Amino acid sequence: MDLSKFLDQMKEKAKSDLKTIVLPEGEDPRTIEAAKEIIKEGLAKLIILGDPNKIKVDGAKVIDPVTSDKHEKYAQDFAELRKKKGVTLEQAREQMNDFTYFGTMMVKEGDADGLVSGACHSTANTLRPALQILKTAPGTKLVSAFFIMCTKKPEYGDNGTLLFADCGLNIDPDAEQLSEIALASANSWKRYIGSDPKVAMLSFSTMGSAKGDVPEKVQEATKLVKEKDPSIALDGDLQLDAAIVEPVAKLKAPKSTVAGHANVLIFPDLEAGNIGYKLVQRFGDAEAYGPILQGIARPVNDLSRGCSASDIVGVVAITAVQAQMMD
Results as ranks from 00 to 15, higher is better:
M10Y: 08
K11A: 10
K15V: 04
D17H: 14
G26F: 07
D28R: 04
P29L: 11
P29V: 12
P29K: 11
P29N: 10
A34E: 01
K36F: 06
E37Q: 11
I39K: 13
I39P: 05
K40P: 08
K45G: 06
K45L: 01
L46T: 02
I47R: 04
I48K: 04
D51H: 14
P52T: 07
K54A: 04
I55D: 07
I55T: 06
K56Q: 11
G59C: 12
A60K: 05
I63V: 11
K73L: 15
D77R: 15
D77V: 07
D77L: 12
A79W: 08
E80I: 13
T88Y: 08
L89N: 04
Q95N: 12
M96G: 08
N97W: 04
D98I: 14
F102T: 07
M105K: 03
E109F: 10
G110F: 11
G110P: 08
G110V: 14
L115H: 03
V116P: 00
L127N: 04
L127T: 07
P129V: 09
Q132R: 13
Q132L: 15
T140P: 02
V143Y: 06
V143T: 10
S144N: 11
S144W: 03
M149K: 02
T151E: 02
E155R: 11
Y156W: 14
G157T: 05
G157I: 03
G160M: 05
T161V: 13
T161N: 05
F164H: 05
F164S: 00
A165S: 14
P173A: 07
L178Y: 02
S179K: 02
S185K: 06
A186R: 02
I193W: 02
P197K: 06
K198P: 06
M201L: 15
F204I: 05
V214L: 14
E216A: 09
A221Y: 03
T222K: 03
D229V: 05
S231R: 11
I232D: 00
D235P: 12
G236L: 01
D237K: 04
D241M: 13
A242G: 15
V248K: 06
A249V: 08
V258K: 03
A259G: 12
A262Q: 06
N263G: 08
V264Y: 00
I266W: 02
I266T: 02
I266K: 01
P268V: 08
D269C: 14
A272R: 05
A272M: 12
N274Y: 05
I275D: 10
Y277I: 00
R282K: 15
R282T: 12
R282E: 09
R282L: 10
R282D: 05
F283D: 06
D285N: 15
D285F: 06
Y289H: 07
Y289W: 15
P291H: 03
G295S: 09
A297P: 07
R298W: 06
P299I: 10
D311F: 00
D311P: 00
G314T: 09
A317N: 00
Q322R: 01
M325Y: 10
M326D: 07
D327F: 07
